[in-house]
């Protein structure tokens, strides 16, 4: 009886021996690990290249984003400059016009006052020429109205470009992702994270104001293809 007990106890203490299939599994796992190492070895040069690429591209991205943020910020200044140019040339044009009108008026008075003087015809010929030249100057002042309208169009195009830039930054601003991830994106783009939210709030307001009644410049560009000459218009009314 006692021997039987000892035999049982020895069997319990005996370590589990590996069977044939266990060895096969271990060998398979080793093979997997070996494959992983081989994959790692293969991917390492790629990862290395990827990091080199990112290292080289990041400063470029920073430049691009700096430029975008700066340009976007400069747009309202450009619009103000254009408005100022229109205003200043308006004043100057009006001044020229007043002077030309005064010249024309004096020439008219002179002609009337001297019309009964014998032999005045010869003297009045150059006066008539001056009058014609002065009238041509006045007519040429139409350029101001035409240029002003073109400047207004440029202003609309600027507003449209600014709108597109703001859309780009607004997308980032509105992204519903973790704040730290968003900050990482902004940092990668070289944007000042602290300033970003403040700038974006101002810009979005500006965008609403600037684009409230701007016509779509793309539509105007398409329309230019169907420009009508004065002759075409005359044909229409004949």
């Amino acid at each position: 009886m006692g021997n039987d007990k000892e035999k049982k106890s020895d069997k319990a203490n005996e370590p589990d021996l590996l069977k044939g299939e266990d060895y096969t599994e271990i060998l398979e796992r080793i093979q997997h690990i070996k494959s992983l190492f081989a994959f790692g070895e293969g991917i390492l040069p790629f990862l290395e290249e990827l990091f080199i690429f990112l290292k080289e591209v990041t400063p470029l991205l920073n430049d691009v984003s700096d430029s975008l943020m700066n340009t976007s910020g400069m747009m309202p200044d450009a619009a103000v400059e254009l408005d100022a140019a229109v205003k200043e040339t308006s004043g100057a044009t009006y001044q020229i016009m007043e002077n030309v009108e005064t010249i024309l008026k004096h020439l008219d008075e002179f002609k009337k006052a001297t019309e009964n003087i014998d032999g005045i015809d010869k003297a009045q010929a150059p006066i008539s020429e001056i009058q014609e030249n002065a009238s041509s100057i006045m007519n040429a002042l139409q350029f101001h109205d035409i240029v002003s309208q073109k400047l207004v169009h440029v202003r609309h195009v600027l507003a449209e470009v600014q709108k597109k830039m703001l859309t780009l930054f607004t997308r980032i601003y509105d992204m519903e992702i973790d704040k730290s991830v968003k900050e990482n994106i902004l940092q990668t783009l070289g944007v000042n994270v602290d300033e970003f939210e403040r700038i974006m709030e101002t810009k979005i307001e500006e965008q609403k104001r600037l684009t409230a009644d701007d016509p779509d410049p793309r539509k105007q560009q398409e329309d230019q293809a169907s420009n009508f000459s004065q002759n075409d218009i005359d044909d229409l009314f004949n």
Partner: peptide, 23 residues
Amino acid sequence: TRGMKDDVLQAVQAGVNNYIVKP
């Protein structure tokens, strides 16, 4: 200053009798 064909046609439709493009 508006010299596009569509502009002229719109103006005619509205009732103008003639149309001159500046200048």
